[in-house]
Design a protein around this nucleic acid. Structure first.
Lengths: 235, 235
DNA sequence: TCGCGCTCTCAGGAAACTCTCAGGCGAAGC
DNA sequence: GCTTCGCCTGAGAGTTTCCTGAGAGCGCGA
């Protein structure tokens, strides 16, 4: 599994070490896992890069030409950056490990390390950090609805929906591949106990189709005399 | 610093290992750091203890008499427990480490380990998990809010805020990219239990926008019928 | 007591949204 | 082929929601 196979934005990683070949190897390995990687070779460059890139994680060498890696970590925390830090250290003494972790590092790897282990650690940390990510997310085909952000996108493109449109789509996403009668829809989305014309439903289905279909094949199928159904055409 | 010096409830930790002396040593060290610690010696006992205690973190031996530690971790995840896991493993092969991390464990320590290191790791993990706890500085995009100095700046320029404005912005910064309903905001910023008029919220959002937006793109997006959200426009 | 800043209410206006209506189109049935 | 019926959708009126200027009340320090 890579970092963005499901349409989520790539996670960003900053790699900081003064040895170009090492930075290169690590960056390549991480890019292969589909992360967005930037590189820096000094502590100050790293601080600047963080401001620009806002990475989710920093792979940070313990020994840098200008600032100690640990000092870089401290300054970031002091400025309110919460991103995770994975220290690279050549020293093997427990003392230093403890110091690194206390300084706000989330983990460390002792040089020399295998790329496989480093990548695994990175993934473990990001899985943990991933709290920012999906709230309650509903998906169907290439449609994503995020309840916390009240946002909808299709095929990666954000789509603006009004409140009623949003609720209607939400109801469809909760019942994919099932025919929903207009009565059911009225009851669940409009909270009408009953009565009333079902034309509102038709109108709003029309709105949804107009907003969603430009980005892909039709999603909402009408089943005459029965209702509507969220469905993708079989290829 | 210990776990509850600031009046927060103690964080709970469950220690699982079949070697009593080890459990004892670890538990004692953690209690010394002011965590609330329970102990278990088998996988099944651990599962039962989790149900009872709902710990924030589990220190889990890789090898247990009945269930493999990793299996305990899997079952917990399967049951929806999200608490962090720190594995204790005697095996030193990278393969196994990688497997553990991939299995959803959050970290691991190789036996033999020093208590100092273990405690440091525990604290590092809980610092992450406990991200809810307000740090000293909150940041979103180019907005920085320092709780200690009670100061706010955007794009480097200091911005003067009244107390209510400050608290409102603080609440937004604690919940970035999430829609906050006016009711939620009233409850958390104004501490109104009831559903009075939400016009105050609108007024203060207006104030915040007036003070913050001159320095950059809009930050607080209104989501009609739903609330407000701290967000930056995607470029 | 006065002045000042802060908090909050109120109300007008603008914008967005909801829903109705009616004409048109296509499918199903005769 | 023709009719009937159900569905689609453009237009627009009515309603809701939101924004914001103005100002009253309050507390605090001078």
């Amino acid at each position: 599994m890579n970092a963005s196979s499901n349409g989520e934005p790539k996670r960003r990683i900053l790699v900081v070490d003064d040895e170009p070949s090492l930075v290169d190897a690590v960056a390549t390995a991480l890019r292969y896992e589909d992360y967005e990687v930037e590189e820096a070779s000094t502590g100050r460059a790293a601080l600047a890069a963080v401001l620009r890139q806002e990475p989710d994680l920093i792979v940070l060498d313990w020994m840098l030409p200008d600032l100690e890696g640990i000092e870089v970590g401290r300054r970031l925390r002091a400025q309110g950056f919460k991103c995770a830090v994975l220290f690279l250290t050549a020293k093997d003494a427990t003392e230093n490990k403890v110091e690194a972790l206390r300084a706000g590092g989330d983990d460390y790897v002792t040089k020399p390390f295998s790329l496989a282990e480093l990548v695994a650690r990175v993934q473990a940390i990001l899985r943990r950090t991933g709290a920012e990510l999906p709230g309650d997310v509903l998906r169907f085909a290439d449609v994503v609805l995020d309840e916390q952000r009240h946002s909808v996108s299709r095929a990666g493109t954000p789509v603006e929906l009004s409140a009623t449109e949003f609720n209607l789509l939400r109801f469809f996403l909760l019942n994919p591949r099932r025919v929903l009668s207009k009565g059911q829809i009225l009851q669940n989305v409009w909270h009408y106990d009953f009565g009333g014309s079902t034309n509102v439903v038709e109108t709003y289905v029309s709105y949804l189709r107009r907003k969603l279909d430009p980005f892909g094949p039709p999603l909402i199928k009408t089943v005459r005399q029965a209702g509507y159904m969220l469905e993708t055409e079989p290829p």
